[in-house]
Design a protein around this nucleic acid. Structure first.
Length: 279
DNA sequence: AACGCCTCCTGCACGC
DNA sequence: TGCGTGCAGGAGGCGT
């Protein structure tokens, strides 16, 4: 499931492969995934250049030469491939951008969970998800004061709190479990009981983990690959995700898998505590 | 306002 | 073998 580091890797690949490319025509094979009707999308983006691709949280933002933006969210299985013109589309190919150099940019998605939105530049705030997205998990954007203020308002469990993109942008199920393990916080800890020292630790781990995962070109699980079709490296650096039943690297206790807010959650029952401010 | 629950969609792992 | 069943999961929408 692509999270921020995977989407960043895809963005980098797309900028190298299709930045500056001219769109000759567009085929839309699965219209349901787009928030405007197919004709409108075709009319708007045909004969435009892809100026560049940006990223915000897990959203890709294709900037076109007519000041329009195609927002693309990969959700679970979405990916982009660049292939020679005329390659037979697989059954998971949903949108094809025909470029003017005998190549095609193809959106593929085996689960059809991904979504695209067409907006004017600057109208990002009008989209329900992107419009309310929280700060990027970086040293400059995710300040301690911000973390403290939102966490002190959180009455629910920390895991779903971190998955909520309006709090912090880009964390998904994998990196959530990882940063909670790194911070020794139980995933069911009530958010506003977490001490300032733990908030500081959690913030540090979120920023560091995302930075390292981007360096490793993301985590490869299931079908994820970047626009080159390459796999990421970071799955080799995961401590809990996908390791239920294996011993914790810190204390040797077998890692457990539970459900928290309908999400599979792996953690160490021994060294991840529901510590409160009062001890 | 903040949170919980349901839905989308398909591939895959099961059990018989 | 092949069928049916249940599960996974990000985020949007809705109810509380």
């Amino acid at each position: 499931m692509p999270e921020l580091p995977e989407v960043e890797t895809v963005k980098e690949g797309l900028n190298q492969l299709v930045k500056g490319s001219h769109v000759n025509s567009i085929d839309i094979l699965y219209p349901k995934m787009i928030n405007v009707n197919p004709e409108k999308l075709k009319v708007t983006l045909t004969n435009q250049n892809i100026k560049r691709i940006d990223r915000r949280g897990k959203y890709l933002l294709f900037r076109f030469s007519n000041d329009m933006t195609l927002v693309s969210h990969l959700r679970m299985e979405g990916k982009y491939d660049v292939e020679p013109e005329g390659t037979e589309p697989t059954k998971h190919t949903h949108v094809i951008f025909h470029l003017n150099d005998d190549r095609e940019l193809r959106y593929k998605d085996s689960r059809k969970f991904g979504r695209m939105y067409l907006i004017k530049n600057g109208d990002e705030h009008t989209l329900s998800g992107l419009g309310t997205i929280g700060p990027e998990p970086t040293e400059d954007d995710l300040t301690f004061d911000y973390m403290k203020s939102i966490m002190n308002k959180g009455r629910g469990k920390i895991k779903p709190f971190l998955l909520n993109q309006s709090h912090i942008a880009g964390l998904g199920n994998i990196y959530c479990d990882e940063v909670l393990w790194l911070s020794k916080i139980h995933p069911e800890t009530i958010t506003n009981t977490i001490s300032d020292n733990q908030i500081m630790e959690l913030r540090k781990n979120i920023i560091e983990e995302i930075k390292m995962a981007i360096k490793g070109h993301g985590t490869t699980v299931h079908s994820y690959s970047n626009a080159y079709g390459e796999a990421g490296q970071f799955q080799n650096s995961l401590h809990v995700y996908g390791r239920a039943g294996e011993p914790c690297e810190r204390c040797g206790t077998n890692l457990e898998k539970i459900k928290v807010a309908q999400r599979g959650t792996t953690f160490c029952p021994n060294c991840q505590h529901k510590v409160t401010k009062n001890g």
